[in-house]
C-alpha cells in the first residue's frame, strides 16, 4: 500500500470511528467528544504554525477568542443569524491574524513568543475593558434561537455532535492537503532550515505570514464554532491558559502530524476531566505534562509512533 493510501485509510477510519462513537458511546462521552472535536480544530490550527512552520506562538487564544467574540458580539448586538455571525467570527480572525502576523514576524524565536503573548494579553484586557458590551469575565449565553444553521438546531446534542464532526473532518482533510501542496512543503522546509529555504529562492516572509494567517483563521473557526455549538462566550477563552492549552495538546499528540492534535486534545481533555473531579488544582497536571513532555517525549504520541513503527504517518 502506498503511504497516501495508508494515510487516507487512517484519517477515514478515524472519522468513521467518530461516527460510530455517536451510536455506541453513552451520552456524557458524546458531549465530551463534541467538545474535543471542536477544540481539536483549534489544535490543528495551532499545529499549522507550530508543527509545520516551526513558529512557537504563546498567544493563539487571541485568534480563538476573535472568532468566538466576532461571532458572539454580532449575534448579541447586531442581531445576526448563526450563519452570518459565523462568517463574522472568521473574518475577525483573518483580520487579527494578518495584523499580528505583519508585526510579530519582524521578530524571531523567543521575541516572537513574547510578542504574541503580549498581543494576546492586550486582546484579553480589551475584552475586559469593554465589559458593558462583552460582559467581561461573566460572559454571555447565545440563545438556542440564534443557534439555527440552515434550519439545523445546533443546541440539539445529536446535531451538535455531527456538526462538530463535519467541521473536524473538513479541517483535517484541508490540513492534510495543505502539507502536500507546494505551499505546505515550503513551510516544512522553513521549519527544517530557514536559511537554506531562502537560498533556494523562496520568499520566507510571505510563506510565514501565510502560515500565521491560516493558523489564526483555523483557530478563529474553532472559536466561533465552539461558541455556536455550546452557546457560551466568555473572557476566560481569551486568557493565557487558552494559549497554553493548544501548545500542550499539540506537544502531547505530536507536533507536525495530522492526527496528533486530535489525540493530544482527547488525552488531555479526559485527564483533566478525571482529575478535576478529585481536585480544583487540575492545571497541576497540565504543568507536569508540559515539563515531562519537553524532557522525555518532545515528539509526542503520534511522533513517537511515526519514528518507531510508521514512517509514512503524515
Amino acid at each position: 500500500m502506498t503511504p497516501t493510501a495508508k494515510a487516507f485509510l487512517l484519517h477515514g477510519g478515524l472519522v468513521l470511528a467518530l461516527v460510530a462513537g455517536h451510536f455506541i458511546l453513552p451520552e456524557y462521552h458524546q458531549g465530551n467528544l463534541a467538545r474535543i472535536m471542536a477544540l481539536a480544530v483549534y489544535a490543528m490550527g495551532y499545529n499549522v504554525l507550530f508543527g509545520y512552520s516551526g513558529l512557537l506562538s504563546l498567544g493563539h487564544a487571541m485568534f480563538f477568542s476573535a472568532g468566538m467574540y466576532g461571532m458572539g458580539l454580532s449575534v448579541q448586538h447586531l442581531g445576526f443569524g448563526a450563519g452570518p455571525a459565523f462568517v463574522c467570527g472568521i473574518l475577525a480572525g483573518v483580520v487579527l491574524a494578518t495584523a499580528v502576523g505583519v508585526l510579530a514576524l519582524r521578530t524571531t524565536g523567543v521575541a516572537f513568543m513574547i510578542v504574541t503573548l503580549m498581543f494576546s494579553q492586550a486582546v484579553f484586557l480589551t475584552i475586559l475593558y469593554f465589559t458593558p458590551w462583552t460582559r467581561g469575565d461573566e460572559g454571555f449565553v447565545i440563545q438556542p434561537v440564534d443557534r439555527m444553521l440552515f434550519g439545523i438546531d445546533l443546541s440539539d446534542a445529536t446535531y451538535r455532535y455531527f456538526a462538530a464532526l463535519v467541521l473536524f473532518a473538513i479541517v483535517m482533510l484541508a490540513t492534510s492537503r495543505l502539507i502536500q501542496a507546494p505551499f505546505g512543503r515550503v513551510l516544512i522546509a522553513i521549519r527544517e532550515n530557514e536559511e537554506r529555504t531562502r537560498m533556494l529562492g523562496y520568499d520566507v516572509y510571505r510563506h510565514k505570514l501565510g502560515a500565521v494567517i491560516l493558523s489564526g483563521t483555523i483557530s478563529a473557526v474553532s472559536g466561533a464554532a465552539y461558541g455556536l455549538l455550546f452557546g457560551y462566550v466568555g473572557a476566560s477563552f481569551a486568557s493565557v491558559q487558552y494559549s497554553i492549552l493548544p501548545l500542550l495538546w499539540v506537544l502531547l499528540g505530536g507536533a507536525g502530524t495530522i492526527v496528533g492534535p486530535f489525540l493530544g486534545t482527547l488525552f488531555m481533555f479526559y485527564l483533566i476531566d478525571l482529575t478535576s473531579s478529585i481536585t480544583t488544582a487540575y492545571m497541576l497536571l497540565a504543568g507536569a505534562a508540559l515539563v515531562l513532555l519537553t524532557l522525555f517525549a518532545p515528539e509526542g504520541l503520534a511522533g513517537s509512533f511515526r519514528r518507531r513503527l510508521a514512517p509514512w504517518l503524515p
Binding site: M113, L247, M283, L284, L290, T294
Partner: peptide, 20 residues
C-alpha cells in the same frame, strides 16, 4: 524555546501546588 515551554509547566506546577 524548550526552556520556555518547560518553565510554563513549572509555573502551573508551583501555582497549583500552592493552591492545594
Amino acid at each position: 524555546e524548550r526552556t520556555i515551554v518547560a518553565t510554563i509547566g513549572l509555573l502551573y506546577i508551583i501555582q497549583q501546588t500552592v493552591l492545594m
